[in-house]
């Protein structure tokens, strides 16, 4: 199973940039004067990299949230962090700061994490399902606030916000990719650095504490970094749900290893999954591409349910 999905992943990564409404001939790829060259390097490759790194961040973010909040349903999406980023991006669009929407998305993500922490520290005993409920409540609140943004925005802004909430991988050139790659590397290396502590967190808070871990501080560091990365990802593509929930679960059931050993695989396959979803979305023969968020849920939900039944 492990080798066959790895093979499949590489096929997806190789095929993806060459297929689309305009197929690209590998022979003309390095001829600078051709259209194929331009489409490949200015559009397809940046798009694939965007999909790959956003998918990786969302999947790994899901794993970390599940570990820290000790609930298999916790992800930056179910706890409202992504909705916070979305709302603040909408606010940026309405206020006319569309150009700095990344910053707003980041602020929205961080604000949500801070609220979650403040609420969690008020609980008499820590309880992951209560926190999940808080996250859901926050998501509803943000959804309502997003409606307000729609209500007060003009037609042009409304349209921009709506496209944003559907999730999109449209990108030209590499400017934003650098930021994304940098963010991904930072997230990956930080989590690798805390691997031992992460494995301790995978036992129990008490056990981790007894082995000397400053659990509270570690949780802050992990959540802050994930929220930063998710904020950057959401600001570039809009909210793409579900990747963070299903990829960690799928990888765990395929590998049957403790989560601290799956950091790189989860990032990698999260990326491949989004590239695959984009590949499907671009090649359905519709007039415009099917929004990425639609494809992830259509592909992911049935497969996820199948896996849960098979267990």
């Amino acid at each position: 199973m492990k080798t066959s999905i790895l093979l499949l992943a590489f096929i997806v990564l190789i095929v993806a940039p060459f297929t689309g409404q305009i197929p690209i001939s590998p022979a003309k790829l390095f001829d600078h004067s051709t259209m194929d060259h331009q489409i490949f390097f200015d559009i397809r490759l940046p798009r694939m990299l965007l999909a790959f790194f956003v998918g990786g961040i969302l999947a790994l973010g899901g794993l970390i949230f599940q570990t820290v909040f000790r609930n298999p349903m916790s992800t930056p999406f179910t706890l409202g962090v992504a909705s916070g980023a979305t709302l603040f991006t909408a606010i940026a669009i309405v206020l006319g700061f569309g150009g700095t929407s990344s910053l707003f998305a980041f602020v929205g993500a961080m604000l949500t994490v801070i609220i979650l922490f403040m609420v969690a520290s008020r609980f008499k005993t820590y309880d992951s399902s209560s926190l999940l409920l808080v996250g859901i409540a926050l998501s509803f609140f943000y959804a309502a606030a997003l409606m307000v943004m729609f209500y007060i925005s003009n037609l042009q802004e409304s349209y921009e916000i709506m496209r944003f909430t559907m999730g999109s991988l449209d990108i030209v050139g590499f400017e934003n990719i650098y930021l994304l790659v940098l963010t991904s590397l930072f997230l990956l290396s930080l989590i690798q650095y805390y691997r031992y502590e992460l494995r301790l967190l995978l036992t129990s808070y008490e056990f981790a504490y007894l082995k000397g871990v400053n659990v509270k501080k570690l949780n802050y560091i992990l959540l802050f970094t994930v929220s930063l990365a998710v904020g950057v990802a959401v600001s570039l593509t809009g909210p793409i749900g579900f990747v963070g929930l299903i990829i960690p679960h799928i990888l765990k059931s395929i590998y049957a290893e403790s989560a601290d050993k799956l950091i790189v695989p989860i990032f990698f396959y999260g990326g491949v999954f989004l590239v695959l979803c984009d590949l499907v979305g671009r090649n359905l023969g519709t007039v415009t591409d099917v929004p990425i968020g639609v494809v992830t849920s259509f592909l992911g939900a049935p497969f996820f349910i199948y896996l849960l039944i098979k267990r």
Partner: peptide
């Protein structure tokens, strides 16, 4: 000081005995 609880509590489904003992 260390405390050994009456019950083992582990969040991760797949952590093996050997890996658990590597901690601490």
């Amino acid at each position: 000081i260390n405390y050994i609880p009456p019950k083992l509590e582990i969040f991760d489904e797949f952590m093996r005995v050997g890996e658990f003992l590597e901690l601490g």
